[in-house]
Structure formats: C-alpha cells, structure tokens
Write a protein that binds this DNA or RNA. Sequence first.
DNA 1: CCCGATCCCA
DNA 2: TGGGATCGGG
Lengths: 268, 268
Amino acid sequence: MLELRLVQGSLIKKVLESIKDLVNDANFDCSATGFSLQAMDSSHVALVALLLRSEGFEHYRCDRNISMGMNLGNMSKMLKCAGNDDIITIKADDGSDTVTFMFESPTQDKIADFEMKLMDIDSEHLGIPEAEYQAIVRMPSAEFARICRDLASIGDTVVISVTKEGVKFSTRGDIGTANIVLRQNTTVDKPEEATIIEMTEPVSLTFALRYMNSFTKATPLSSTVTISLSTELPVVVEYKIAEMGYIRFYLAPKIEEDEDEHETKPQV
Amino acid sequence: MLELRLVQGSLIKKVLESIKDLVNDANFDCSATGFSLQAMDSSHVALVALLLRSEGFEHYRCDRNISMGMNLGNMSKMLKCAGNDDIITIKADDGSDTVTFMFESPTQDKIADFEMKLMDIDSEHLGIPEAEYQAIVRMPSAEFARICRDLASIGDTVVISVTKEGVKFSTRGDIGTANIVLRQNTTVDKPEEATIIEMTEPVSLTFALRYMNSFTKATPLSSTVTISLSTELPVVVEYKIAEMGYIRFYLAPKIEEDEDEHETKPQV
DNA sequence: CCCGATCCCA
DNA sequence: TGGGATCGGG
C-alpha cells in the first residue's frame, strides 16, 4: 500500500513537465526514504535523477519498496488535469498494476481520481558516485535558461569555462560566434540573484546545447541552478526542490574538437 | 425594415464565437419578440437555440417577421471587425438580400458598416418541447469547461451522473480512467461560484466530449452554466445571456454501451 | 490566482 | 486552422 499526499501539488506537475520531453518511460521508486526516479533519456545520452524526500509530503505511507513503471507522457496528461493549487495524492495498492492520482481542490468541493496503468520497464539503476567537482557554479535558473536558449540560436554546443573571476558560455556556428561571461557576484539584494563560483581548478568543458535546453525545462522548480563541472565527468545541472529534494541532470562532455575541424581542405 | 441596436456589442461577437464552429449556416429569425436562431450542427447531431429578447436591445425595430439566412463564418469575420466596446447595429431593408452590421466606436470617432449577402437556407424549425428534467445542475461555466477539456485528454465520452450529493463526470480511455466529483455547494462567497443540484431522481447519461467541448465555447457569455438531464432526452447545456436571453445546446445521450464491449472474445 | 491576449505548435 | 502554452495585466 502506497499513499503519498502532497499539498503543493503543482510541484509534481512541474517535475513532470521538466522531464517528460527527455524521458518517455521510467520507473518511480518508492521507499521509506522518498519518491525517486532515475532514468536515461530516450537517446541514452543524458541521465535524470529525481528525489522527493518523504519528509516533504504531508502524508507518506509506503509499506514496502516498490518500483512503478510509468509512461511519463500519460502521467503528465493526467497531472495536467490537476489545478495548480490542488492537493495531489498518489496511491497504489499492493500487487496492483495501476496507480491512482487523486486531486482535491483547496475548497474540497472537487475531488478527482485518475487511474493509470503501470508498465514493466527494464531499468539499469546506476549508482551515481558522489564526486568532487573542480568547479561549482550557482546562478539564477532563469538566467541560465536564457543563456542556453540564446546560444542555441547560434550554435549546437556550448563551452562552459570557469575561472575564479567568472563563468563563460561560448558557442560558434555558421553565422558567427558568441561568448557570454558572468562575473561572480554575491552582492545582490536577493540571494537567488547571486552568481557564486566555488572552484578548486579552472575547467572548460563542451556540451550539446540541445540537452542543456531540455534541462532548463525544470526552471520553474527553483529560482537557482547549480552546475557542477569536472574534467571527464558528466556535468550535473541541479534544481533544488524546496523542502523535498532535487532534480539533477547529468550530461557527458563532448570530446574537445580539433580547432581546424571545419577546414574543408584535407590536413597534410 | 429591421434595425437592432445593441450597446454591448461584444455580446453578439461572443455569441458568434460560440456557435460558428458548430454550425456553418443558419437562419436568424427576427420578430417583435426578439432575435433568435435555431440550428442543427453540421453533422446533425447537436442543436443550438439562441434567443436575444427585444427588450435587451437599446433600439429594436422589426416591422414584420423575417428570417435571414447567414453564413456564420462570414458573419463572425465581420463581427470580429467590431471593437469589444463598440455599439453594434444590425440592419436589413425589406426585400433586400443583404444585411448590414454597423459598428460605432464608444467615442463616435469611428463608424463602420459591413454589408453581407444573405443566403437561402432550408430550415426545419423544430418545436422544442419544454420538458421536466430529472436533474438540473448549475455550476461555474469555467469549471465545466475545464472538466470537459481535461476529460477529453483521456477519453472520448463523458458519463455525467447526478445524485443529490453531487455530480460526477467520468471517462475512460487507452491510458486510464478519470472521475471528477463536484459536491453540491451553495455556501460560497459569490453565487456564481456555487454548484447547485436540483434533482427528482438520480440520473446517469453518456455524451460525446467533442460536442461538450464545442458547447463550452460559450463560456465567455456567462459565469454559470446549467446542465439539464433526463433519461432518453437530449441534455440541455444552457448559458444565460444577461438581460437578453440564452444560448442552449442540445445533445442526445449515447446509448449505454455493453460493459463487455471491449472483450476480444466473441460473446456466446 | 484568474483572465485575456498573443505566439507557437500540431 | 484550432488548441495549448506562455506572458502580461487586473
């Protein structure tokens, strides 16, 4: 028996909006600890890890560990039927092959229940080792989204370079090049507007903008984002979910291209 | 000679927005009583009845009963040319085969007149008998629209079930099932937010969501909607038009499907 | 938080 | 061409 009640139902709606374009089907794992998900994107390039800790729910009952395979597109369809201030409860009976989403309006005048079939999904649950990163950038999530969107209109990849002065996002495309530099800035009115760099060593890595732009779908979940970088490790783009956990996106860097790769003439 | 002047011209704009997708061509009937229309939708499944009483117009002159056949798409195109706070006058000369829409801006600085050809339309003007209904639900129109839209993302038909406790909207589709229950609730701050059930007998009927969603195009005309249900009678979905009349949509229920219809094995 | 308007996608 | 989503305003 599983019963998870979340007063701020819009959180789970936003979570699904942020991953449904990246991952088609995934197992949600439920244990006493919390409600979590780990899945590769459909092209097996990026990885999503979600954690919603049990303490963040108003009611959390999970009698035994359970893994529920869901089609995220269908789940998202159902969650769209919840109002933004509805209370959402996720229920599953032991041995059932369905999950029920219950939506209660704040006034209790409307109660909806949506039942969805579960799926069997092979999941290779990777252990993700906690790593030390050479650089961790925290910045406003909306600004990061804007930068990724802007750069994607020029090129396909972004080079993220961190020094202790700041972070630089660069791209190059047919029509030209672009560089956006953010200086470290901790002296702002609101802490969520700060750009903060923790760095042990300068680092410069290249990533596909297409995936970065997918990750920024999670922007509504948090006003800040942290980007953790280390040579030869996947970047971690993390959005904290207030009081509950996080959603993290992992993406391997591209191998540095030869500067001359665009030359049409063959190399000697 | 016909001349109908309506200060709140946006009303007639909204009326056309709410029926132009359902009905292609229709006769507007004008008499001393008012301006009315009755038409089947283009697939001859649903029926629309509109009444705008003469008392609701600031000036109403209709020398003799007249029926004017109009293409609602073209009429809507013209009405879109009126500002939302324009005064709209509908004019037709006796024996003319055209109708003129005149739009006056509130400041009188702009006066437009649009002339449209009338059409000859066969219309079987059905007498719609006033019926007694087993259940009449009054609820916020926006909520009804939201429910029909949400359910249409899951299934094709809605079962509306009324008991004295409340009204339930249910559907079923490939990805799962959905039930939305509204409790009767008369204790709200604003009367238009109430959900009120008048019922002599419980009733449960099935309708095509496609039509329901067409009907909800009339939502801007009224903050509440009433849904009148009786076994084997068409449902009536009515939006009152303040001070003037109503727009009513009629739709026959679907015959209740056999529970086993989805079985793959043939019935014995 | 709801509403309307505009823009974009299907 | 219609519906949905997003953005801006009340």
